[in-house]
């Protein structure tokens, strides 16, 4: 089943994607929440509206578009882990921006005004004051995205064709394709895939429960 290889791929993709998602979506949501013009409202509406679009509606044109980019602009999108990370970021943006936006609105703007008076740049205000306050919702965003990206089967199955690039769900799928009757091997393989999840849960338990509750009520 090539488990260690798949584990490494899954870790690489999940960790990088989640880190970039947290940084970019918090920045975007904060700027959208603090700027009160029509453009911000429209952009935010677009983010939310697309939450309704199921993946199946996008999968085919996305693959076509990505191959076009790969062929014409020579930026490798298909069959690379980086291309997959790029796509995961795109798909997570709606919900991540939505969660951050709601939270940012509840932070009093006086904090930022005080910092600006004291001479902080916009960058300084964001990174040294706002981002630490965002910790609870950042945890929620991280956890939701980790679960989604780690367990995702469909997007990697369409993007990654090399055997060596497979993530855990992919390698499980192909493993079951080859060994449909040898259940003892299959069960052993499944147990392996569950171990990282259990470890993750044991470490993050408190935060997961708290985060989902808060995210939902907001």
């Amino acid at each position: 089943m090539n488990f260690l290889n798949a584990l490494a791929n899954s870790l690489y993709i999940t960790i990088l994607s989640v880190l970039i998602i947290v940084v970019l979506s918090s920045m975007t949501a904060w700027m959208l929440a603090r700027t009160d013009n029509k453009l911000s409202k429209i952009i935010f509406m677009i983010f939310i509206a697309t939450m309704l679009i199921p993946f199946q509606t996008l999968m085919m044109p996305l693959m076509q578009f990505m191959s076009t980019i790969t062929n014409t602009l020579h930026i490798p999108m298909i069959n690379t882990r980086e291309g997959l990370i790029f796509m995961h970021i795109g798909f997570s943006s709606s919900i991540s921006v939505f969660l951050y936006h709601g939270f940012v609105k509840s932070i009093p703007i006086t904090l930022e005004e005080a910092a600006t008076i004291d001479g902080a740049s916009k960058f300084g205000v964001f990174w040294r004051i706002i981002f630490p306050i965002l910790k609870p919702i950042t945890v929620t965003v991280m956890i939701l995205n980790v679960i989604n990206i780690w367990n995702d089967y469909l997007l990697p199955s369409l993007t990654l064709t090399d055997k060596g690039l497979r993530t855990i769900p992919l390698s499980t799928f192909y493993f079951f394709g080859e060994f449909t009757i040898q259940w003892n091997l299959a069960m052993a393989g499944l147990m392996l895939t569950i171990i990282p999840v259990v470890i993750f849960y044991v470490l993050a338990q408190k935060h997961i429960i708290k985060g989902i509750g808060e995210g939902a009520v907001k």
Binding site: T50, T57, L58, F65, F86, I89, G90, S93
Partner: peptide, 10 residues
């Protein structure tokens, strides 16, 4: 990124 991955394919 969002435009490239979601809006344009849609």
């Amino acid at each position: 990124i969002f435009l490239t991955v979601v809006v344009i394919p849609f």
